Simulated scan of single mutants.
Amino acid sequence: MKRLHIIQVISNFPNAHKLPPTNQGGTEKVVYELTENLVKRGHHVTLFASSGSRTSAKFVPFPKGLRGKGIARYVLTKMPRHVDVIHDHTFNSALGQLKLKTPTICTLHMPVKRYVKHPVYVSKRARTVMGKNRGHYVYNGLNPSEYQFSSKKQGYLLFMGRILREKGVLQAIEIAERTKKKLIIAGPIKNKAWFDRELAPRIRKNPHIHFVGPVGGINKQKLLKYAKCVLFPSLWEEPFGLVMIEAMACGTPVIALNRGAVTEVLAGFPHMICRSIPEMIAKVKQGSFPDPYSLRRYVSRRFTTSKMTGRYLAIYQKVIKNG
């Protein structure tokens, strides 16, 4: 394969995080890993991202407060002359919505219905629901070697993700209450009024429930690798669910509600997929979980950065050839 010059663009104003992200930012993590892997494979990559980001690619920082059409204008003025393909990761597909001569693919990391010429979704389910089966899909990946593994577990349940109603935090608390298990909740509060009104009183009332806020690095790895299981009671059309593969890479099982891409991510462990919260409660009580080694092997075979990069390169070649 000839070396490509690829533009990677990520600027999700107003919540853009530096690359690599420290304690939140799943999209930023995926874009960072993809960029690094493309560079390792010998491609020329220019990354447009938040100021302060670190990368092996040529880096062009965005000015603070840039948004909407301003993102596209800025990229077009700073872009190198000879570019083979643009990969737009912005939540509003800022470049993909323009009719550019340079082939442009858009990864739709969030569940939005938006017409672009070359859409890429992060699961088959997202492509079906949001794209009506049009375009491509590429699963998110990670580097298993960067995740600490433990076959020995402690007795706590773990919820890790943005603290929002639709992520199922209240359902995670219900599961912990009904099973009388310790629960650790980790993640950034995205709706403080809702947190203070509905979540905080439940947490204060139960000494076995602990909220630790957003976590990253070693603290995140420790929580994941020692958890008895990760609860994923998501109530919305989650396009992928990165924490599921992060947990399994650490050898930790995931019990999930059948929403969004759960059946694809947990395809190798269908008995961990539940149709209701009572079924999730029953699974926790039974405690019959997959072997930690089989969980890590599963992720290493199906959800790696290398596989993700290979899939994107195939799509780049296709759009370059066909326009």
Rank of each mutant, 00 (worst) to 15 (best):
263 T>E: 12
204 R>Q: 14
73 R>M: 11
148 Q>T: 07
194 W>Q: 06
49 A>M: 08
89 H>W: 03
207 P>T: 09
267 A>P: 07
190 K>D: 11
125 R>H: 15
311 R>S: 14
218 I>V: 13
282 A>F: 04
132 K>I: 14
60 V>A: 11
129 V>I: 12
53 S>L: 02
225 K>F: 07
131 G>N: 13
234 S>W: 00
68 G>C: 01
163 I>P: 00
252 T>Q: 04
220 K>D: 15
142 L>V: 10
318 K>Y: 14
129 V>D: 01
222 K>D: 06
81 R>A: 13
129 V>K: 01
218 I>E: 14
279 E>L: 14
14 P>A: 04
62 F>Y: 08
221 Q>T: 07
152 K>Y: 09
55 T>S: 15
4 L>A: 12
208 H>D: 15
209 I>M: 09
51 S>H: 01
103 P>S: 12
48 F>A: 07
162 R>S: 15
32 Y>W: 14
287 G>C: 07
288 S>C: 08
259 R>V: 00
314 A>V: 07
233 P>I: 02
14 P>I: 06
209 I>K: 06
214 P>G: 09
24 Q>F: 10
168 G>H: 01
98 L>E: 12
304 T>N: 01
209 I>A: 10
168 G>F: 02
64 K>M: 02
134 R>C: 12
160 M>L: 12
109 H>F: 10
174 E>D: 06
99 K>T: 14
69 K>M: 08
232 F>S: 03
51 S>I: 03
212 V>Y: 01
3 R>G: 14
32 Y>I: 01
261 A>D: 03
281 I>Q: 14
28 E>M: 03
224 L>N: 07
85 V>D: 12
321 K>F: 03
247 A>H: 09
310 G>C: 01
319 V>G: 11
189 I>P: 05
23 N>V: 00
66 L>D: 02
99 K>Q: 14
309 T>C: 14
317 Q>D: 15
84 D>C: 09
207 P>M: 06
312 Y>G: 01
186 A>R: 08
4 L>F: 12
46 T>K: 06
322 N>A: 11
280 M>Q: 01
241 G>Q: 01
314 A>W: 04
41 R>S: 10
290 P>G: 04
18 K>G: 09
130 M>F: 11
308 M>Q: 03
323 G>F: 05
184 I>S: 07
235 L>K: 04
211 F>L: 04
306 S>W: 02
198 E>L: 04
13 F>I: 05
83 V>S: 07
126 A>Y: 11
316 Y>G: 04
102 T>N: 14
93 S>H: 05
291 D>S: 13
306 S>Q: 05
82 H>L: 04
176 A>P: 11
95 L>A: 02
18 K>I: 13
215 V>G: 03
269 F>C: 10
296 R>L: 11
320 I>P: 01
10 I>E: 12
266 L>M: 08
245 I>T: 02
297 R>C: 04
216 G>P: 11
92 N>R: 12
134 R>T: 15
59 F>G: 05
139 Y>Q: 15
